[in-house]
Design a protein around this nucleic acid. Structure first.
Lengths: 339, 339
DNA sequence: TCGCAGTGGGGAACCGGTTCCACTCCACAA
DNA sequence: TTGTGGAGTGGAACCGGTTCCCCACTGCGA
């Protein structure tokens, strides 16, 4: 209700001086500033963000486009983004991207364009060239998380290397029959992460001369997905692998549960490694590569904010690769002796 | 860049007519409307939500205050809220409430008040009277999810009845030594949900004449929490309960894992029931009470939107109790015969 | 023929801030 | 003494829509 004009009147100054006193821009005498501050406090004055946005063209609001809220990686990333934005006094407007093309289109054409956000962070989404153009045409910073796209700035881990490293770890332990349980190769979410991880596994296998058919099985990216996939892969004792590289920790946990179910001991009869650093990894003693999604979210916010500081013209796009931590626990060891 | 004034010029009408044509308010001839629409399409005109908000006083934006993003219940609720808001063409601004008092205060005093939102949905938060006053003073609808607070509208399940029902289920199967593994009784998050569930368990035990010391153990609200708690509770075979009522499905799953670890068969030696309807419940064959958090989120949005329609003056607060579904799976059965 | 209601549309005020511009002091240097 | 420049301030324009108010025109009933 009470506008800055009321504050100005109470303080006995003009609107302009009141604004300058409260924002800190421009010259104001200490006396005038004090009077304005007292008046504002007295009236419980709260500036209208909307009006301020209209006048300055800055919304102090960042749009986050994300496909899932209830998956570990995405929830962690979102938490990191939120923490970093709040610390910088920015709001976060959430847009969940649906698979359905029409609703997806709507997010881009309707919501994001309406000048309600200063920048956009896209999490785990392969943006189409059309979508990238639509966003860059707005002149707003846009940062992707989960993969690298040349046209925009991105934050991600090196998925190929990660999978390669884990596979090499198993190879170095002596495993020769290694199977990868990973996600849908055609999934357009996720910057083709699934395909990259498979490629990493295959590179490591090829380097060790261990390439073989049946080195990959597609499963749902979840504990039940890993469970179901492992039941199938481990069913036949004669052809059973001695180690499994899971596409993510949840798949790995599903594998461990399935192995228990089948009476296969982990790790003496089966080694399992994952990628993520999921909260449950420790409980299951899972060897994994931690990727700290919340740090990725925070880093993405840094990139955005750098590009939002007034003076700094256009900053070139950056493709940032985040470090990972290899945590060896109890699920990976040497394979059993040949029977 | 292109404002409505440009559209009006191109269409050869005044700003007012262009606005009327595009918003549908007021009289516009079909010819004028058509010309405006063509001009807008041609210029790729997108209205500035900010300017529109300033003029109308409506932001088409709802603030959601939530303490966790990476917990199942909260992620599900958020997904339901998001879906319902997008469908109604509303934006969703996310505020994560930190435990830390200062940051919590900041959310309320700084972010929520700045006229950026039309309404607030608070998920799993016991609002202090001061906070409720601060919000209602804004004259904005405010709806809580996860508990009932007389001063505001709320959506929740009946936690006391839920816990009572599950306990009675175990009693009816013949169990006499039942233990509840639940959350921190003093947790101010969550509308004292933990305390309500314990109360429900105790009511059922008392009704069956089965009250006994050691009927409750506090654990972290997670799979590792349930695991650790169960290891302790199940350690001594002589005093071991025959059934456990878990405060949530994740605790229940932790209990199942701990039982397996200890060589205790579920359900022949130990029955376990949960509350939630977690994604993993099916994989573990868990008997549970599904509470459909996404529906709670959607319902909360309905309450908010009802209170936001222009004509409808003040609508009285409502305390809505959502139905739950009892799903009997494989983890609950009769207790073993006395040895 | 006059009056009135209903359409249609333009001008201007308005939402609540920010900022440009012009102007006044006043100190200090030339 | 005049000039210069920076501090400090108020008035007014502006951001980009929406909406109030008023006027014009048409058609219809009295």
């Amino acid at each position: 209700m009470s506008a800055i004009a009321d504050v100005a009147r109470l303080a006995g100054v003009s609107k302009s001086t009141a604004s300058r006193a409260l924002t800190g821009n421009g010259y104001v005498s200490v006396a005038a500033r004090a009077r304005v501050e007292v008046a504002a406090a007295e009236m419980g004055y709260v500036p209208s963000g909307i009006a301020s946005s209209l006048a300055t063209g800055l919304t102090r609001n960042v749009g986050v486009v994300i496909p899932y809220l209830n998956r570990w990686f995405f929830a962690e990333v979102l938490e990191g983004i939120e923490t970093a934005l709040i610390a910088a006094a920015y709001d976060l407007t959430l847009y969940r991207l649906h698979h359905e093309a029409a609703r997806r289109q709507r997010i881009f054409d309707y919501f994001l364009v309406r000048k309600r956000v200063d920048a956009v962070i896209a999490v785990g989404i392969s943006l189409s060239p059309h979508e990238v153009r639509a966003l860059t045409a707005l002149g707003k910073p846009i940062v992707g998380i989960g993969g690298d796209v040349p046209a925009i700035s991105t934050v991600s881990i090196d998925d190929v290397s990660a999978a390669k490293f884990l596979t090499a770890h198993l190879v170095s332990l002596g495993h020769t029959r290694i199977v990868h349980l990973g996600g849908d190769q055609l999934d357009q979410m996720d910057f083709a992460v699934h395909a990259k991880r498979l490629a990493g596994v295959r590179q490591a296998l090829a380097a060790a001369g261990l390439s073989h058919p049946g080195d990959f099985r597609e499963v749902a990216y979840s504990i039940p997905g890993g469970y179901a996939g492992a039941l199938a892969v481990l069913a036949d004792p004669s052809s059973r692998p001695t180690a499994i590289v899971a596409g993510c920790d949840e798949i790995a946990i599903g594998v461990i549960l399935a192995a228990r179910q089948l009476g296969i001991d982990v790790p003496t009869q089966l080694s399992v490694v994952g990628i993520d650093g999921h909260h449950l990894a420790e409980l299951f003693g899972l060897t994994t590569l931690e990727q700290h999604p919340n740090r990725q979210g925070e880093r993405a916010v840094e990139l955005v904010l750098e590009r939002l500081v007034p003076g700094a013209g256009a900053i070139a796009n950056e493709q940032i690769t985040m470090p990972v931590d290899f945590i060896v626990r109890r699920t990976s060891t040497a394979p059993p002796h040949m029977e």
